[in-house]
Design a binder for these strands. Structure first.
Length: 567
DNA sequence: AGTTTCATATGG
DNA sequence: CTCGCCATATGAAACT
């Protein structure tokens, strides 16, 4: 078996719009977005798209993959690549400093022709029981933009992309973002294999039997009683921070809050009980029986992924908390019989991104090692890996206090170029400016710059305590981290898109993606080949983004039956 | 009664 | 002198 295939020399481009009756219009386009033939009205859009995909595998241009692709997928049509006008418009508006303006095809067209710009319609979540109803959900309002509108906006977007700071990079960003929309739809439809019986067993082991009346399960009720006992009271809601604070105060312990790390520093017989209660209570409410009934069906967990749902370009999810599945609950994620999971995790992704984008040769050399922190420690921290790590993380997050301060000074001295890179991003943000990721995603604008209209302090400077100054520093930390986090998201999205292409036509399916981690479900006999394909996708992503860089982006790969067993 | 904010947990 | 980034989800508490 082999994965991957060659590129076709010239990629055909076909625009597509849907009508409300399952039909639509196709339109071949040339390299600059002009019509390259007559518009082709069709009555069965899914069939027409499927036929064209099989014959030419074009790049599809459409208003919104989130709106069109689910119905195509339900009809059994899988597409190789697309240009998503709505996602691209969001990226272009951001690049132009017009973050937050409506980004729909209709809005983009209105800006082009000078008409009134309609606000983006709220996107209703896909109903959990999808699969019935019209092939393409009939919009309740007036008919959507036609094929001429689509082609005009597409051509305009191509021109605007060409005018960005780094057009080549921006094209990659648009391609990755568009592919992400396809993958998110496919992944949500496929779902993550989920064994309800194993989930039940985990819950029974942790929580005891569920209460028949919907109250807390047995072990939680027992813990609550023992906590009340330890405080010498009849009853106590351990999940209420206020009650807990009062209870501790009565036994002479004054606490600022009831966070776990605060409680851990307290000597009292109730503490270990409370900590256990918090942990189990969380699992019961957020990932217990009710969660399973709502989100798991047919042996799969079906979250709704939202690519680009986070300002940094990371994916979000709507409902189900798919990106916060606790480690213990991952025991329920089991491969089908005869199948395996290939789990790949990009270790130390963000510091490696800093090494690659900052142009700091010394840090880039360290980034060539399998363990960047260890290399950093050998190079500049007298072998102290822990100190090297807090220094680098502190620099990327904007830490200014605590034990990291001396380590940060070492970092600044040894890697001035890398340090200066994040410092510059922070200063730009503090001053109210915009920063961009490596491929050109732009951060949202901030508020008013700190120096304008702020009352001078006693020494004539700006009061660092003022709300405005605090907000400026907060925005500086945001922009400082944005240039790293957003670029890391781009690397991961590029890997994912590359991997999807490599796996196309095989039995392997992408079933999970979480920031810097991807899970593929495949027949056991193909697991080794899939693992190699994932590794190759990582190398391809590195080359596409950074070209010839000494920085490596190694993947921790494991082949497992159960997600919880992944390294 | 319904909505918003707070506190706390989870994930990266 | 305060000072670590991005999120989602829950229930309690505080609002309207």
């Amino acid at each position: 078996m082999s994965y991957g295939r060659g590129r076709i020399a010239s990629v055909l481009v076909v625009g597509v719009v849907a009508d409300e009756r399952g039909g639509g219009v196709l339109q071949a386009l040339d390299a600059v977005g002009r019509p390259a033939g007559p518009a082709e009205p069709v009555t069965d859009l899914a069939a027409a798209v499927a036929a064209r995909e099989a014959a030419e595998r074009p790049r599809w241009v459409w208003g919104s993959g989130a709106a069109l692709y689910p119905a195509l997928l339900r009809a059994g049509v899988r597409l190789d690549r697309c240009h998503d006008v709505e996602l691209t418009e969001g990226l272009l508006l951001g690049h132009a400093g017009r973050w937050g303006e409506p980004r729909s095809l209709a809005a983009a067209s209105a800006r082009l022709t000078g008409g009134p710009v309609p606000p983006d319609p709220p996107r209703p979540p896909e109903p959990p029981g999808h699969g019935q109803g019209a092939l393409f959900d009939a919009p309740s309002g007036p008919p959507g933009p036609g094929i001429e509108t689509l082609t005009q906006v597409y051509a305009d977007q191509l021109a605007r992309i060409a005018a960005t700071t780094h057009p080549g990079r921006f094209r990659l960003l648009v391609a990755a973002e568009s592919a992400g929309a396809l993958i998110a739809t496919e992944m949500g439809a496929a779902g993550l294999p989920w064994r309800a019986d194993v989930h039940d067993a985990v819950l029974a082991e942790l929580l005891g039997e569920p209460s028949p009346v919907g109250g807390p399960p047995r072990r939680l009720a027992e813990l609550a009683a023992r906590i009340a006992d330890a405080f010498g009271v009849r009853q106590l809601h351990a999940d209420s921070p206020a009650e807990l604070l009062k209870a501790f105060a009565r036994v002479g312990v004054e606490l600022p809050n009831t966070r776990a790390w605060v409680l851990r520093g307290v000597e009292h017989p109730a503490v270990p009980l409370v900590l256990e209660y918090k942990e189990l209570y969380r699992i019961w409410t957020a990932h217990g029986w009710a969660w399973r009934d709502a989100w798991v069906s047919g042996g799969r967990f079906h979250p709704e992924y939202v690519p680009g749902g986070v300002v940094s370009g990371r994916w979000a999810t709507r409902g189900g908390g798919a990106l916060q599945i606790p480690k213990v609950i991952r025991r329920a994620v089991m491969a089908d019989p005869g199948w395996r999971f290939v789990v790949a995790d990009a270790g130390q992704l963000e510091p490696r991104v800093l090494a690659a984008v900052s142009g700091d040769a010394r840090l880039a050399a360290a980034g060539g090692a399998g363990d960047l922190y260890a290399a950093l420690a050998r190079d500049a921290f007298a072998g102290d890996r822990a100190r090297a790590k807090v220094a680098l993380l502190g620099a990327m997050y904007g830490q200014t206090g605590g034990a990291a301060v001396p380590a940060l000074a070492v970092l600044r001295r040894s890697y001035p170029t890398a340090f200066g890179y994040v410092e510059a991003a922070a200063r730009t943000g503090e001053a109210g400016g915009l920063v961009r990721s490596w491929l050109g995603r732009t951060c949202p604008p901030g508020g008013v710059p700190v120096t304008d209209g702020d009352d001078p302090g006693p020494d004539g400077g700006v009061d660092p305590q003022s709300p405005r100054a605090r907000a400026a520093r907060s925005r500086g930390r945001f922009t400082r981290n944005f240039v790293i986090q957003a670029t890391a998201a781009e690397w991961a999205a590029t890997l994912l898109a590359t991997l999807r292409t490599a796996l196309a036509g095989s039995d392997a399916e992408l079933v999970f993606f979480q920031h810097d981690e991807v899970v593929v479900h495949c027949p056991a006999g193909q697991a080794d080949a899939v693992a190699r394909a994932v590794g190759a996708a990582g190398e391809r992503a590195t080359a596409l983004l950074f070209g010839d860089t000494p920085v490596r982006f190694p993947l921790d790969l494991s082949i497992v039956d159960c997600y919880a067993d992944a390294a």
